[in-house]
């Protein structure tokens, strides 16, 4: 099992499935009526107030049209959802979110794997690289985006000047796809170290005997990688795939908010950012709540699909 501030979707699901009413966690347990509740009350209270209450509120609000000035709400049934399904803008943002998540995940995983494989080969010198990369991991997404914003600045940004060398006018914050490009670069930059750490620790847990056997069986380094290393890394890769999709969907909020700032009009954004924008800037509480519910369902469906489709093909050594 792996620790991360947010558990992967598959871990969440496995947790759900693995522990119905099964045997107790311990063969020996205390038998008290009240003591366990004393230990549970703080966490239960917080979960009820700050998780169940807002979640329920999201579902109820999604059926209402709320007056922006707070003078009551009208029940509108499924209207908010119907509006969403008819909205071209919403569909376009959903499309961008899918594209963005796919590209960020693929690049972050690929680069993380490449660096980890190389670091594994130079194992004695891997320490400094590891320290360097892990320090990038500790940087918060909005801070990464603030630095990225400077790199892509229209006047002083080195990236902009570099593109100009090739005659390309990079206009991040103004041109839709230029901004998307910057968002992707920053999001990938921030996530590569995380994947690197996990891939490296996965690689280093491959036993020496297996490595030696592979060295004898396969002469070419590439074949060794494809036939031996990759299958052994599959559980790590599967775990990381889900973590990365979750990252691209939710944790990039800070990056988007810093880069897009106050000009969301013709700039790219993800579904989570749209929930925020409609709820807080647009005062469309019903619409924002309906989007929240759609996202909740999406997360639940993703969990099941990923768990069923992908985990079956993964080899566990």
């Amino acid at each position: 099992m792996t620790v991360s501030p947010s558990l992967s979707l598959a871990q969440r699901l496995r947790l759900w499935v693995s522990r119905p009413a099964g045997p107790p966690a311990k063969a020996v347990q205390f038998d008290r009526a009240l003591t366990p509740w004393a230990f549970l009350v703080p966490q239960l209270a917080i979960v009820v107030i700050f998780f169940y209450w807002p979640s329920a509120q999201a579902v109820t609000s999604s059926f209402y049209l709320e007056d922006p000035f707070g003078f009551g709400a009208t029940f509108v049934g499924l209207d908010n959802y119907a509006d969403l399904s008819r909205s071209n803008e919403y569909r376009q943002i959903a499309g961008f979110t899918a594209f963005f998540s796919a590209v960020v995940t693929a690049l972050a995983l690929g680069l993380g794997l490449l660096l980890a494989v190389k670091a594994d080969k130079v194992i004695r010198a891997a320490g400094p690289y590891k320290t360097a990369l892990i320090s990038v991991y500790a940087i918060a997404p909005p801070v990464a985006a603030l630095i990225g914003m400077m790199l892509f600045d229209l006047h002083i940004g080195p990236a902009t000047q570099f593109a100009a060398l090739f005659g390309y006018d990079l206009r991040v914050g103004i041109d839709y796809w230029d901004t998307a490009f910057a968002l992707i670069v920053i999001s990938v930059w921030k996530q590569v170290p995380y994947n690197f750490i996990f891939f490296l620790s996965g690689l280093q847990s491959v036993p020496v005997s297996v490595r030696e056997a592979a060295l004898i069986d396969a002469r070419s380094g590439w074949r060794r990688f494809v036939d031996v290393t990759l299958p052994l890394l599959a559980p790590t890769a599967f775990f990381l795939l889900i973590i990365n999709v979750t990252y691209a969907l939710f944790d990039t909020f800070g990056i988007i908010d810093v880069i897009v700032k106050d000009k969301p009009a013709n700039n790219p954004m993800t579904l989570v950012y749209k929930v925020y924008l409609d709820g807080f800037k647009g005062n469309d509480i019903g619409g924002s709540s309906a989007q929240s519910v759609v996202l909740m369902v999406l997360v639940a469906v993703l969990t099941v699909v990923q768990f069923r489709l992908l985990e079956r093909r993964v080899h566990y050594g």
Binding site: S6, L7, Q11, R12, L15, W16, V47, I49, F50, F51, W53, P54, S55, Q57, A58, S61, T246, F250, F253, V272, V275, Y276, G279, F280, I285, S288, S289, S292, L295, M296, V299, A300, T303
Partner: peptide, 18 residues
Amino acid sequence: FATLLLPLEVRIMPSYQV
């Protein structure tokens, strides 16, 4: 453990209201 299923980001507005 059901709380693990849904991150904070999907219930921004209602959390704020609460």
